[in-house]
Amino acid sequence: MLSYRAGAMRALLAAACLLGASLPVRADWDKIRQSGSLKVAVYKELAPFSNNGEGIDVDLAQALSKKLGLRMVLLPFPADEEVADDLRHMVWKGHYLGYGPADVMLHVPVDKHLMSRNEQVRIFAPYHVETVRLVRNAGRIPAFDSIDALAGRKVGVEKVSISGMLLLGEGNGRFRDTVRIYPSAIEALHKLKEGELDAVLAKRSEIESVFRGDSAFPLHDVAFPRMPRSGWAVGMAVKKDDTDTARLLQKAMNELSESGELARIFARHGVQVVKP
C-alpha cells in the first residue's frame, strides 16, 4: 500500500510540474489579451523602419496589433552594443532603467547563431531581407564595374555600421582617406543628394527610402569577402515559452504578407519588401 501511495504521489507531483510548466504559455497570451494592448519594442533610430515614432516597423506594429484585435503600445528603445543585450532588455528580462520587457520585439535578425546563444527568446516570422548596396551620383561616377571605381572618390558611410566596417576594411584600408563618416546612413545619403559626396554604401532600404528610384542615383551590388551577398533576414522575437503569442503573430504576419498589406506598408516609405 505504501509503495502504491508513493507511486501515486510521484505521478501527481509530475503531473503538477507539467501543468505548471504549461500554464505560463497560455497565461502570457491571456494576460496580453486581457490588457487589450500589444506592447511592441522597436529601435529608436533605425530609419526607415523606426525613428521618432514613424517608419515601416511602426506601421507593421500597428497592423499586427489590429490583426490580433489589440491596441498598439509602442516601446522605442536605443540599440545596445549587441542584439543579445536588446533581446534581454526588451524581450525576456526588462531594462535596468525600468522599461520593458515588451510582448514582442521587431527587426530581430533571424540568425541561427543568435538563436542558439539566446535560449530565453523565440525568434521567428522573417518579414524582410536586408542587403548592403552602393548608390552613386551618376554624374560624378558615370560607370561602376567594380569597387575599384571608388578610388579617389568621396564615399559616405554610417559610423559603427556594417557598411563602414566593410569599406574601411577593404583592401587593407585603401579607401580610408576618402571615406566620410556620418552619424547615420540617412544623413550620408542626403549629403550625396546635395552633391557633397560621390557615393554612399548603406543598407538598400535606407537608400530606397531617400532616393525612391531616382535614376540619377543608381544602386549597385558590391561583393565583399566578409559579407554574404544574399543579405540577412529580420523578423520578431518573444519570450521562449510564449508559444501562443508567437503562433498568433506568425499567423497575422502570414495574412499581412498574403494580402499584400506588408508590401504596401514598405511602399509607403519608398522601400521594396524582399521576402525571405
Rank of each mutant, 00 (worst) to 15 (best):
I141A: 06
N137V: 07
S161C: 01
P48I: 06
R5K: 00
A263K: 12
V104T: 09
V129W: 05
R133T: 03
L97A: 09
R176K: 14
R5M: 00
E81I: 11
D30Y: 10
V25D: 10
G231F: 01
V271W: 02
T131M: 00
W92E: 03
I56R: 05
V83Y: 09
E194N: 12
V155R: 02
P24L: 03
A263L: 06
K93P: 02
I162V: 15
A27T: 11
L201D: 03
E82K: 12
A143R: 12
E130S: 00
L249Y: 02
P101E: 01
F124H: 09
G69Y: 14
A79V: 13
A138C: 06
V274Y: 04
A61T: 13
A267W: 03
G164P: 05
F211S: 06
W29T: 07
E208N: 03
A6Q: 14
S37K: 15
K44L: 12
A6P: 06
F224E: 04
P276I: 07
F211C: 03
M165H: 13
N118L: 00
A185P: 03
R176G: 03
N52Y: 11
G94K: 00
G20L: 14
E158Y: 07
R226K: 11
V155G: 02
I32E: 01
I123P: 05
E196I: 01
V25R: 02
H89V: 11
D198F: 07
D86R: 08
V160H: 10
Q120A: 15
S116W: 13
L192P: 06
D244W: 12
D59L: 14
A125R: 01
R117K: 15
A199M: 11
S215L: 03
A263T: 00
G235N: 07
L189R: 04
F266V: 11
D241A: 06
V25A: 11
E170M: 08
E54V: 08
G164E: 02
V25N: 10
S22F: 15
L166N: 02
V108E: 03
I147A: 06
K67C: 14
N254D: 11
S22G: 15
W29Y: 15
A151F: 07
I207T: 08
I207H: 01
E170D: 14
V238N: 03
G270H: 04
I56T: 05
E82D: 10
E130V: 00
R153Q: 15
L189K: 04
M90Y: 06
S259H: 05
K240Q: 10
G36E: 13
S215N: 08
L60G: 05
S50P: 10
R136T: 12
G152W: 08
N254I: 08
G55L: 01
E54A: 15
W29I: 08
L201G: 07
G213S: 09
L150P: 01
S146P: 14
S230N: 13
I186G: 05
K275N: 15
P276H: 01
V157P: 02
A79L: 15
A237M: 09
D177A: 15
L167I: 01
P228D: 10
S65I: 03
A8M: 13
V110C: 09
G173T: 13
E54D: 13
S22D: 09
E119N: 00
P126Q: 12
L166S: 03
E194V: 00
L13E: 09
T131L: 05
K112T: 15
A11L: 14
F266W: 13
D86Q: 12
K251I: 06
P142E: 10
R117H: 09
G69C: 11
P76A: 03
A84W: 07
H269N: 02
A79C: 08
R140V: 15
